[in-house]
Simulated scan of single mutants.
Amino acid sequence: MKYYAIIVAGGSGSRMQSSVAKQFLLLDGKPLLMYTIAAFSQCPLNPQILLVLNIHQHSYWEELCFAHNFDIPHQVIKGGEQRFHSVKNGLKAITGKGIVAVHDAVRPLVSSELILRSYRNAEELGNCIPGITPSDSVRRVLNDGTNEALSRNELTLVQTPQTFNVDVLKKAYQVPFRNEFTDDASVAEYSGQRIHLIEGERENIKITYHEDMEIAAIFMKNRK
Rank of each mutant, 00 (worst) to 15 (best):
residue 138 V to I: 15
residue 72 I to E: 04
residue 107 R to A: 05
residue 174 Q to P: 00
residue 87 V to K: 01
residue 153 N to Y: 15
residue 157 L to K: 11
residue 87 V to E: 00
residue 154 E to G: 10
residue 166 V to Y: 10
residue 70 F to S: 11
residue 161 P to Q: 05
residue 100 V to N: 02
residue 178 R to I: 05
residue 90 G to S: 03
residue 63 E to C: 02
residue 114 L to N: 04
residue 149 A to F: 14
residue 139 R to E: 13
residue 168 V to T: 15
residue 73 P to L: 08
residue 118 S to R: 06
residue 121 N to K: 14
residue 71 D to Y: 14
residue 141 V to S: 01
residue 145 G to Q: 12
residue 127 N to V: 05
residue 101 A to P: 09
residue 128 C to Q: 07
residue 169 L to G: 01
residue 107 R to Y: 00
residue 150 L to K: 12
residue 91 L to D: 07
residue 83 R to L: 11
residue 139 R to F: 13
residue 75 Q to P: 00
residue 142 L to Q: 10
residue 68 H to C: 02
residue 74 H to K: 04
residue 119 Y to Q: 08
residue 171 K to W: 03
residue 123 E to M: 14
residue 107 R to S: 12
residue 113 E to A: 14
residue 83 R to P: 00
residue 113 E to W: 05
residue 134 P to M: 09
residue 163 T to W: 04
residue 118 S to K: 06
residue 130 P to V: 05
residue 171 K to Q: 12
residue 110 V to E: 04
residue 161 P to R: 03
residue 92 K to E: 12
residue 120 R to D: 03
residue 66 F to M: 02
residue 120 R to S: 05
residue 64 L to I: 01
residue 127 N to T: 06
residue 53 L to T: 04
residue 76 V to N: 01
residue 71 D to K: 15
residue 122 A to M: 10
residue 131 G to W: 02
residue 149 A to N: 13
residue 76 V to R: 06
residue 177 F to E: 12
residue 125 L to I: 13
residue 94 I to W: 07
residue 169 L to D: 02
residue 96 G to R: 02
residue 165 N to D: 15
residue 73 P to T: 11
residue 97 K to T: 15
residue 96 G to Q: 12
residue 119 Y to D: 06
residue 113 E to V: 14
residue 139 R to V: 15
residue 177 F to M: 10
residue 79 G to A: 05
residue 94 I to N: 06
residue 139 R to L: 10
residue 135 S to I: 13
residue 137 S to P: 07
residue 165 N to A: 05
residue 74 H to L: 03
residue 64 L to Y: 01
residue 155 L to E: 13
residue 135 S to W: 07
residue 78 K to A: 14
residue 84 F to V: 00
residue 158 V to R: 15
residue 136 D to L: 06
residue 111 S to E: 04
residue 85 H to S: 10
residue 172 A to I: 02
residue 174 Q to L: 08
residue 116 L to T: 13
residue 79 G to C: 06
residue 97 K to E: 15
residue 171 K to A: 14
residue 120 R to F: 01
residue 164 F to S: 04
residue 72 I to S: 03
residue 96 G to T: 10
residue 61 W to T: 02
residue 83 R to G: 15
residue 136 D to G: 01
residue 80 G to K: 02
residue 158 V to F: 10
residue 128 C to S: 15
residue 88 K to E: 09
residue 55 I to R: 13
residue 177 F to T: 07
residue 75 Q to R: 08
residue 69 N to I: 00
residue 155 L to Q: 13
residue 118 S to M: 04
residue 156 T to G: 06
residue 118 S to P: 07
residue 108 P to T: 02
residue 162 Q to H: 10
residue 57 Q to N: 14
residue 122 A to T: 12
residue 97 K to L: 08
residue 146 T to G: 07
residue 176 P to W: 05
residue 162 Q to R: 09
residue 77 I to R: 01
residue 64 L to H: 01
residue 58 H to G: 03
residue 133 T to P: 00
residue 166 V to C: 08
residue 73 P to V: 11
residue 139 R to G: 03
residue 176 P to Y: 08
residue 122 A to N: 09
residue 61 W to K: 00
residue 55 I to M: 05
residue 121 N to S: 13
residue 165 N to S: 14
residue 134 P to K: 06
residue 175 V to N: 06
residue 140 R to I: 14
